[in-house]
Computed example of a mutant assay.
Amino acid sequence: MDGITQGTETTESFTAAAWGQIKPIMAEIERLPLLERLSDGTLPPEVFRHYILQDAIYLKHYARCLAIVAAKAPDNAQVLRFLGSAQKAITVEQGLHAGFLTQFGISSADVTAAEPSPACFAYTNFLLATAYHSSYAVALSAILPCFWIYWHVGEGIKSKPAIEGNVFQAWINTYGDPQFAAGAREVIALTDIAARAASAPERQLMGDAFARAAQYEWMFWDSAWRLEKWPV
């Protein structure tokens, strides 16, 4: 995968520097068994069921984070951009989930009864707290890794030869889609614009939020692979 230059204009941009700082995290993400076996179609169904249920919970909260970011946006164009992203998180991606829920025998009652894993709970609460309490620029930096890392992962999987009969191909197609890539690029560009207007201390907070969210991305996928539950 070659995500280090994707969506960045120059090596001097804030996002390019932030992406460079999470190279060790990205190396670990690329080695995750869940992604490797999703790519070749050998992921155990129970792991994917766990992942999809947790992702449905995550998206419910992520949509609210996007709405908070929209409310803090400095102009109407950015307000509409993130309100549109919030709507997509609820409709488009949950539409993808609906197909998988049926395919993998997950009922609406299962979805309703599902509770967040420790990793999902921690990640969504970090995003909500950052979006609510922080500046627009810092909030943008916290939500960006979800866009960028999924794009990076989707592009990497899509670049491999397709496995005939891969039951996870719809997931690969969603995150390897050019429209998803365009959306990720737009959020990257908006983050760079915000960074240029930010003070040095605020840019430090932006970098910290970006790195923490990237760590949570790894934790989220790893926890699904381990079928993580609350220990007590």
Rank of each mutant, 00 (worst) to 15 (best):
T15D: 05
I25M: 12
P44N: 14
L32E: 07
I25V: 15
R37G: 02
T15L: 06
L35H: 05
R31P: 07
D40R: 06
E30K: 06
P44F: 14
E36T: 07
E30I: 10
L34F: 11
W19A: 07
E36Q: 15
T42L: 04
Q21P: 12
I22C: 01
G20S: 04
R37E: 08
P33I: 04
I25D: 11
Q21I: 10
E36Y: 08
E28D: 14
E46S: 13
R37P: 00
R31I: 09
R31Q: 14
E28M: 11
A17F: 03
I22D: 04
A18I: 04
W19S: 08
E36K: 15
V47H: 10
V47T: 09
E28N: 11
G20L: 02
S39C: 11
M26L: 12
T42A: 07
A17E: 09
T15S: 02
K23H: 07
W19R: 10
E36I: 12
P44K: 13
D40A: 11
A17W: 07
P24F: 05
E36D: 12
R31D: 15
E36L: 13
K23V: 06
L34N: 05
M26F: 14
A16V: 00
L38S: 06
A16M: 06
W19D: 01
E36C: 12
G41C: 10
R31F: 10
R37F: 08
T42Q: 01
Q21F: 13
W19Q: 11
V47A: 10
S39N: 05
A16N: 05
I22L: 07
V47Y: 10
D40P: 08
E30Q: 15
P24L: 01
E30H: 14
P24M: 03
Q21E: 14
P33K: 00
I22K: 03
L34V: 11
E30P: 08
V47S: 06
A18R: 03
P33Y: 01
A18S: 09
A18T: 01
E30S: 15
I25H: 03
I29Q: 08
A17D: 14
M26D: 03
